[in-house]
Amino acid sequence: MRVRPPKNWQPSSDCQYALDRVGRGAALIENLSICLLGGIQPEPIRKIAGDTQDDGLLQRLFPIVLHPASQGTDAPAPPVAARYGDLIHALRNPAPIAGGGTFLQFDSDAQKVRRRLEAEHLRMQSTETISRKLASHIGKYDGLFVRLCIVWHCVENAQATQVPQHITAATAERVAAFLHGFLLRHAFAFYAGVLGLSEDHDRLSAIAGHILARRLERITNRDVQRGDKAMRSLRDQDIQPLLQQLAAMGWLERIDGPRPSSAPHWIVNPAVHSRFSARAKAERERRDEARRVLASLTGDA
Rank of each mutant, 00 (worst) to 15 (best):
G99Q: 06
C35T: 11
L58W: 06
Q53I: 14
L91S: 02
Q105D: 14
P63M: 05
Q71I: 07
Q41C: 04
F62L: 15
R4C: 01
F106P: 07
L36G: 01
Q105C: 09
T129Q: 14
I130K: 07
A82T: 09
G50I: 00
H67D: 15
Q105L: 08
P96R: 06
A77Q: 09
P76R: 05
R24K: 13
L91V: 00
A98C: 01
L122T: 01
G85M: 08
E118W: 06
D107N: 13
N31L: 05
L122A: 05
A81E: 07
G50L: 11
I34V: 15
L57N: 09
P76E: 05
A95T: 00
V113R: 04
F62M: 14
D74I: 12
G38W: 11
P79H: 05
M124P: 00
F106Q: 03
Y84A: 10
Q59Y: 02
R92L: 05
C15F: 15
G50P: 00
V80D: 07
P42A: 03
E43M: 10
L104Q: 03
L122K: 13
F103H: 14
Q16I: 02
R92W: 00
P76N: 04
A18M: 13
R24D: 07
T127F: 12
S13M: 13
W9M: 04
D109M: 10
F106N: 10
R60T: 00
G100N: 06
P96K: 07
M124R: 14
G23N: 12
C15N: 15
Q105S: 14
I130P: 02
T52G: 09
P68G: 01
R24P: 00
L91Q: 03
E118T: 02
P42T: 03
T73L: 14
G50E: 12
F103V: 01
R2T: 09
I34M: 14
L87A: 08
G101Q: 13
A75E: 15
I34K: 10
Q53V: 15
L66A: 11
A69L: 11
G72W: 07
G101V: 02
V113T: 11
L61N: 02
L87S: 05
E43V: 12
P42D: 03
T52L: 15
G85E: 10
Q125N: 00
L61G: 02
L117C: 03
I64F: 15
I64R: 11
T52W: 13
G56A: 04
E120I: 06
I64W: 13
H89V: 00
H121P: 00
D86I: 00
Q125S: 02
L122R: 12
L61Y: 03
S126K: 15
R123D: 04
L61C: 06
R2F: 04
